[in-house]
């Protein structure tokens, strides 16, 4: 029994090594069984090539003329998050069951499909617009005003398009980086987009929520708490003295990716 096992082991190991030889280089295993994975890497011959330094320094070039102000806002947001937002979110998760929070998130997410639809149309993305329309229809009717999300279960993936992306799609550059109070990382273009989407929300007044929020600010408050609840970012999460720079880079690049797709 044991013998067949070790034989199997042996064959498997040999087969694996054989299959590796097809890639023209064998992995040498030494007497200790060490496979030394670095042995097949190709290293730069010239010591002066410094590819990492070139790439890293280049990545730090992001337009940020308001850096002093932005950094102060970053610290303000960080403190506000620790002392107000996160304790509130913690209380919210304590007093509400999971399915209720899910319902709240779905409800606001359904409202957020309106800007997605409008911006998909503006970018002439027909398929996406149709998908989003179908989602709105199914979720608002079968999903009881969006509290439940049957559309995703039916295989209709959620898309996210906003006016900042539409502007980017038509070639508007992102402009200087901005750290918005409470809202977090942004830039001049995306802040403009935010205002446009907000105005749109208000004028469409889907399910009468925008107008009703004026009379009942608690709806607006719930929306903000939900927003913080579903946003995974935690200040300090990167545990780096250079978190500001890293967030700036990641935000800028992820927006570029979203615009390109």
């Amino acid at each position: 029994m044991n013998k067949t096992h070790s034989l199997g082991n042996y064959c498997a190991a040999s087969l694996l090594l054989l299959s590796l030889t097809n890639f023209s280089h064998a992995q040498q295993v030494d007497d200790d069984g060490f496979k030394n994975p670095l042995q097949n890497l190709k290293f730069n011959q010239h010591a002066g090539q410094h590819e990492f330094e070139r790439a890293a320094l280049d990545a730090l070039h992001i337009s940020d003329p308001l850096e002093q102000w932005n950094r102060r806002v970053y610290h303000f947001n960080y403190r506000f998050d620790q002392w107000v937002f996160l304790p509130v979110v913690k209380g919210y998760t304590k007093v509400t069951p999971h399915f209720l929070r899910k319902g709240v998130s779905n409800f606001f997410s359904n409202l957020g499909e309106i800007p997605t639809l409008a911006n998909s149309l503006l970018q002439l993305k027909g398929h996406r617009a149709m998908e989003t329309t179908a989602r709105i229809l199914f979720n608002t009717t079968f999903g009881l005003a969006g509290v439940w999300d049957p559309a995703t279960k039916m295989g209709l993936a959620k898309n996210n398009e906003d006016f900042g992306q539409t502007l980017g799609y038509y070639g508007v550059p992102h402009g200087p980086y901005l750290m918005l109070p409470l809202l977090g990382p942004s830039n001049v273009r995306d802040t403009g987009g935010l205002v446009a989407d907000y105005t749109l929300d208000f004028s469409v007044n889907w399910l009468n929520v925008a107008k009703e929020s004026e009379r009942h600010p608690e709806i607006f408050a719930l929306k903000i708490v939900d927003q913080r609840y579903i946003t995974k970012l935690r200040y300090g999460q990167l545990n780096s003295p250079f978190e500001y720079e890293k967030i700036r880079y990641v935000y800028t690049k992820s927006r570029e990716l979203k615009i390109a797709e």
């Binding site: 670095l38 890497l41 590819e51 990492f52 790439a55 890293a56 280049d58 990545a59 990716l257």
Partner: peptide
């Protein structure tokens, strides 16, 4: 430390390593 000295970018490619990564991601998501 030695890992950053691998031939990650073609020597006649003018892009930096991170630009190359971004291009790959863009093409993939497209």
């Amino acid at each position: 430390s030695s890992l950053v000295n691998t031939q990650a970018v073609d020597s006649n490619d003018h892009r930096t390593f991170y630009e190359l990564l971004m291009d790959k991601l863009t093409r993939y998501f497209n």
